[in-house]
Each structure stands twice: as C-alpha cells, then as structure tokens.
Write a protein that binds this DNA or RNA. Structure first.
Lengths: 336, 336
DNA sequence: TAAGAGTGGGTAAACCTTTACATTTTTCTT
DNA sequence: AAGAAAAATGTAAAGGTTTACCCACTCTTA
C-alpha cells in the first residue's frame, strides 16, 4: 500500500493539514515542524496522490494533445516546444494520435473530458458539428494549432497559409517557371490544405498563368501520397511541368522520390518546392528548398496561450499568426 | 459546473448506486431504470470523473512512456504499436521526453508516481542507483524497451543486439569488406550501444580482421552525430574504410551525408550499413541497407506484457527478444 | 400459504487531499 | 504581567466515485 498524507502526519506527530501546508507551501509552518515533516516525507518516499488532489482542487495538471499524425516530422518539433513550457509548470502531456479520423478524435476528446484534462491542444483536419457540440457543452480550454477553425470560437495559432503558399509559388515564378504543378492536401473548408492551394492559385493568377488541370493533384501530407501524386502528374501531363509545389515537405520528398524513380533529375529536369522545413529537408539530395515554419515555436506559443486561458481565465478567440520564411537549398533551379 | 453522478441520479429519480451500475455494467439494473438513466446521461452529457473514480478504485487508466528521443523515427512506430493496444483497453498514454538526461527521467518518474500511473514503459540509456531505488520503492509495474537492464528485475523487450550487429557486420565481411569502420552509440554498461559494438568486434574477430582504432567512433544516435563521426573517420583514417556500420539509421544517414559532402560516392567509394530500418531508410539515396527492427511490434509486445502485469498481477522479469532481419537496399556494394 | 431464495435498488462509508474555520500558542503592548 | 493581536496548528467537511451491506420485493417450493 502506498504511503498517504495520514501516514506522514502520524509518523511526524502532526496534523495532516500541516503536512499539506509544507507540501504546497500554502501557509507558513514553523521551521521545526517543517523539518520534521520533510524528514518523514524523505524517509517514507511519500508522494501526494494527484487524483485526490485533483478531485479537491478541480484540476488535473494534464494537457491533452490531439494530432492527426504523430510521425509527420513536425510533430516532434511541436511537442518539444510544448513540453518545455508544460514542464516549467509541472504539468503533463497526454498524446492522442487520431490518424485524421474524426471518430478517433471525438473519442479522445471524450476521454480527455473524463480524465479532467485542464486544457486541449487540438490539431485536426476538419471541424464538424460534433466537435462544435463538444466544445460548447464542456467548455474545456482549447487552442487549435496549425489550422484555423473560423466559427468555432476557438483561438488558434497558425501561419498565414495562403500568403506562405503564395510566396512559395511566386518564388518559382520569379525563377521563370511557368508550368508549375501542385500537390495539395485534403480540401476541407478553410483547412490549411485548402488555403495553400488558394495561395498557389493566387500566385498563378497574378502572374497571368492559366491553370492546367493535370497539374493539380491531391495528397494527404504523407511521403507515400506525394509519391503517388507525382506519378500521376508524370503520367497525365501533356507537357511535363518544370516545377512542382508540394504543400508539405513529406509530400515533396515523396515527389522527389517519384521523379528519381522515373528518371527525372531534380532540379535539372524538374524543380521541387516543399513546405514546413522538417529535419529531413536537409538530408535528402538535393536538399529541399522549402517554406520554413518553426514548429517548436508554434508549440510554445500554443501552450502559452492555453495556459494563459487556464490560469488567468483569459477568454480569447484570436487567431495568432506566426511568421515563416523561405529557405533556399538545392531543389529549385532558375530557368532562363 | 460539471454535471455529476448525483445530478444524474436526481434527475432520473434513482440512487447514485444505480447510475454507477449502469455506467460500469457492474450489476444488473432493470431495463426501465437503465433506459431512464441512459437518457439522462445522454441529455446532460454526463461524463464520469476519472479522478474520483481513480481515487476510489486505485487505478488511473494512465500508462507513462519515457523515451530519450521523441524524434528519432523509431518512436512514432513504437507509439503506434502501443496505442493500438492501449486504446482497446480504454487507457491513455502519457509521454515524457527525457532527452537522455537522467535527471529528467527521474523527474518524470516521480510525476508519474504522483499521477498514479498504472504502468510505465521505460526506454532509457542507463540504469542508475536512483532508478533502482525508485523502482524498488514504488513498485510501479514497468517494462523496459529497446534495452535490457540486467539486475533491475524489470522485464524487457528488445532484440538481440549483439547478434544483430554481428550479422550486420558479417554481411559486410561476406561482401569482402575488410576495412570496416563503426559508428556506435553511447557505451553504458550492457546498453544497446555497447552491445552493438560488441557484435561488431565479434564479427571482425571471427573473420580474423584486426581492429583499427581510427575506425571506431562514437555518436549518440542522431543524424548530426553520425555526420560528425563520419567526418572524424575521414579525417583520421590512414586508409579510408571501404564500409561503415552505423548503429542506427539516423547515424547512417548522417554518415551518408558526410560522405556526400566530402566527395565520396556511396556505395561506389564506401558502403554504409544502418540499423533500425526507419521510414527514412527508403527515402535517402542510395536507399539504406539496414538491419530491420519492427518497432511497432516491439511496442505492441511491450504494452501487452505491461497490461498482463497490471491486470493479472503477473510478476515477470523475463527478457523478451523479438527477431530482426537484414534488408538489402542500395548502400552496400560487394567488393571483389 | 409460509418460508426461503433470488433479484433489484438504496444508504453510507471509503478513497486522499485541501482548506475554511476553530483552537492553541506565541508575541507584542502598555 | 495581563490582555490583545498575530501566528501556528488542528479538526472536519467536501470533492465524485465505487461498493459492501442492507432492505423490500417477487418467485419458488413444499
């Protein structure tokens, strides 16, 4: 059996209140008592029971994170940023991998509620009626990351996806590319997938380049899907594009792979532009030119906003946007 | 304020005991009552408070995972395997990233204790006296993964690192390589890092190849460390090795990178052999020949043993070993 | 038809804390 | 040195569950 506050109190010859006080530094306790108690704690290895504590103070010290893809390379960075802050506040992170399935997401959310999670960091692909109902009903402090869900009333931290994609494609255009394909993500309303496609279209339109249907393909942010999309482009294009903009580095890498496998040399035959700047971007050859996002900073910002909401009850539905920048490596070539 | 079991009971005109019974299916309840209660639950959105429940039944439904490196590519796979099983048992996973720092590990362990974690999956780099004391004192069900800690009394699931490394290097020798360098991991007693180095030495010895000191370098399993180690090999070797065995794919990829940057072509000038078979292994060019470990299965096995221990109180300090196999891709060339 | 078995449902204690409030001890005033 | 104010400590209730135990029925069975 675990040792409880009662055991400590008895052994130290004090009341449980005093023990609680020295544990939490919640009220002054005389030096002698404090020392006596501390000794007993040390000696017995007593650890306060977080469930009992949580039950009483109505806080669990748990933060829940829902992510659609634990292995997408941006996740580790995101968590890093979150963890740093969370740790300073001696809280804990619960991770749930939804794989983009709404049902899994919802299930995780409900378990979170049961576990009395203090706050939620939500990274989903779409926002359904069920989500809406959940957040309205339970009012758990939540902040959305990577994605905005306008109308959800939830604060978010993202980057300006339209602008970032626009700049990426504009960069290709400035390098004299005119036949630019795109591998975009899932197109839910106002999702990052959709927004990045909009940025692509905007850049083309501004440059007076007409849209070529076969140049537009869809993936789901994974390497594999990038590979398949690229193969589709190669197969279906009447005229091979000279550049392709992938809405994620992983898809870009998949596309790169497909090009290589099909005998196209990058960037000589075709230029590839990524998005995210994951660690891998520097490892593949050629190294990936990409739109760089600091996911660790994203995580940090997210958790800061969340904690502000939890601790200071700061209601807030702002959409925070972090900046981004293009990093030139070797996968894009200037045409003349 | 959240709705409690009391509210539900009152609204349904029954006792809280009955509500508890239908929630947990712990005792038969008449169909009429059951339906009435279910309705109220549905209608009010009642969720049982896991802390109160946990306090009473002395179980939190939480599993804690400690990993030294959340972004090492094997982690995501491991978690995948764990999650699947954990979910079926409607438990939850708490993740803590120790970065290989013992202090962080211990801190996480203590927080786990406070949170009344039901079980621990532990992936550390070394096992100190403090670890020992912790596990002896608190007796939290724990299983070690990727690594054995003999003498800890903890069950583990790993692969036979010595044998796997031996086979990897033997493979190189069979390809007529004689000058084989190694990039090994941190050398704590009986760590996977050490064992893989032992396997390397064993293979050389068996083939009657003498050890070349400059060929032996150390990394910490990261890409960067692999890069640096390879640079050291290149700089210090009187005679360039014809092959290098890296004790992790990430280090292998770093080494590959270094070779490329220094004008060596892989595998023409130098062969590289990895270990782990992470997703990346198929992405880099040349694709990595490596010793493949199914980390997802590793995770599954680990959690199964842990749950068996938790639920059936099955004491157990066995060292489980999963198998592995070599996968040939393009980074190793046969010499003649 | 009366006693016993079986079933559905309720009451209240227990799990381990925190904290408002009550009580005791110490310190300060005059 | 007495009395008041301040500080330290203790007592007990509350937080939301689960469950042992008890009670009141309904069915059997002889």
């Amino acid at each position: 059996m675990s040792v409880t506050i009662k055991d400590v109190a008895k052994k130290a010859g004090v009341s449980i209140a005093s023990v609680s006080r020295v544990i939490n530094d919640s009220k002054p306790v005389s030096p002698e008592l404090r020392e006596r108690i501390l000794n007993v704690i040390e000696q017995t290895g007593y650890k306060p029971n977080a469930m009992a504590r949580g039950l009483k103070i109505k806080a669990s010290g748990l933060i829940g994170l829902i992510t659609p893809d634990i292995e997408n390379g941006t996740f580790a960075e995101l968590v890093k940023g979150i963890e740093e802050v969370i740790e300073e506040n001696s809280m804990n992170l619960i991770v749930s991998n939804s794989k983009g399935e709404v049902e899994k997401e919802l299930k995780a959310l409900h378990i979170f509620k049961e576990q009395q999670i203090d706050g939620i960091i939500f990274s989903g692909v779409k926002f359904t009626e069920k989500h809406k109902k959940y957040f309205e009903r339970y009012q758990v402090p939540t902040v959305v990351v990577s994605q905005k869900f306008p109308g959800s009333g939830l604060p978010s931290v993202t980057i300006d996806n339209i602008e970032a994609a626009y700049q990426a494609v504009k960069y290709l255009i400035d390098k004299n590319h005119k036949n630019i394909a795109v591998i975009h993500g899932p197109l839910y309303d106002r999702s990052s997938g959709e927004e990045r496609l909009i940025g692509y279209q905007k850049a083309l339109k501004e440059a007076g380049i007409s849209i070529t249907k076969e140049y537009i393909t869809q993936g789901d942010f994974t390497i594999k899907s990038g590979y398949q999309a690229m193969e589709k482009i190669i197969k279906n294009s009447v005229k091979m594009p000279t550049a392709v903009f992938a809405a994620s580095d992983r898809m870009a890498i998949g596309a790169l792979d497909a090009c290589l496998d099909n005998g196209y040399i990058v960037p000589e035959d075709i230029s590839i532009m990524g998005f995210d700047d994951i660690e891998l971007a520097e490892i593949v050859r050629p190294k990936l030119t990409t739109m760089s996002i600091d996911h660790s900073r994203l995580g940090k910002k997210v958790i800061e906003i969340l904690l502000d909401r939890i601790k200071n009850n700061n209601e807030n539905d702002r959409a925070y946007e972090l900046d981004f920048h293009l990093v030139e490596r070797g996968s894009v070539k200037k045409l003349n």
